[in-house]
């Protein structure tokens, strides 16, 4: 039965890429290369090192931005989750940020911080941080009441309750929030490269579009989506291994 799932996954990949190939051969549009052409361009760019340089450039704001968002986001989230004053003060901001199209802030960030790394890092941060803060705060607030009571009944200090009960209980949801934050961070990093200045993968996309080298453009897009999906799947696998026994039941987006 495990084989059936594997075969079907393979079949579904063949179907989708096959449809891409056929549509490219008809062709549906002058700007729609075939699957094989695009893969050819992908391997050519991997081979001549174009991809490696591009990703070194693209991943820098992503990594810096995600690191800042994770650190600040979890700290603020813990604070908001533990204190009703900070919840009152901060949570409206992050709730609005979560619902709002923050991408609209980009032109303003460019005006204020120029077109360099700072702006791009900030774009990643505003995309990634709200979900990290809200997940952390929600998880901390939702620590099962009976577990906290248990801590009190067995004479745990307030600090011990936070360190030994609240944070471990919240960590699966905090981790899930990090994963969602990184997913949003990818969106931000690419948006920054397409909107602010074309660098890295964004540069390959923009440049090859301008010279109508569509296979390279599709290859670059394919590679970044593949990278993001593989990385997020890896995180999800780590999550299941790490928090195997913990109760789940919190979902947030």
């Amino acid at each position: 039965m495990a084989n059936r799932a594997l075969y079907l996954k393979f079949l579904s990949a063949v179907l989708l890429f096959g449809a891409w190939e056929v549509a490219g051969r008809i062709p549906v549009s002058f700007a729609f290369p075939t699957f094989l052409e695009s893969m050819g361009a992908l391997f050519r760019m991997i081979g001549d090192g174009t991809m490696a340089t591009a990703y070194a450039e693209t991943l820098r704001p992503l990594v810096v931005g995600v690191a800042i968002s994770a650190f600040l986001g979890i700290a603020i989230g813990l604070w908001v989750g533990l204190s009703s004053f900070f919840e009152w003060l901060f949570s409206p901001i992050f709730i609005v940020m979560q619902a709002a199209p923050l991408a609209a802030l980009i032109p303003l960030l460019v005006l204020a911080y120029g077109i360099g790394l700072t702006s791009k890092v900030l774009v990643v941060c505003i995309m990634a941080m709200p979900v990290i803060v809200l997940n952390t705060a929600g998880a901390v607030r939702n620590t099962p009441e009976s577990m906290k009571e248990m801590g009190k009944a067995f004479l745990a200090t307030d600090l011990a309750i936070i360190l030994k009960i609240v944070i471990p209980a919240a960590s699966p949801v905090i981790f899930a929030g990090l994963r969602l934050g990184i997913s949003a961070g990818f969106i931000g990093a690419i948006l920054a490269e397409l909107k602010i200045t074309p660098t890295g993968v964004g540069d390959i996309i923009t440049y090859s579009r301008s010279i109508a080298d569509y296979p390279s453009m599709y290859a670059a897009i394919f590679s970044i989506i593949l990278l993001a999906v593989l990385f997020l799947n890896l995180l999800e696998k780590i999550e299941t291994v790490l928090f195997k026994g913990n109760q789940r039941g919190y979902v947030s987006d």
Binding site: L11, I187, L194, R209, A228
Partner: peptide
């Protein structure tokens, strides 16, 4: 089984990258 893998891919993929296409 045929569609679910792709739905999951596009759910978490950075769709911004598709806008130029």
């Amino acid at each position: 089984e045929l569609l679910l893998p792709w739905v999951n891919v596009f759910l978490s993929a950075p769709l911004t990258a598709l806008v130029p296409v």
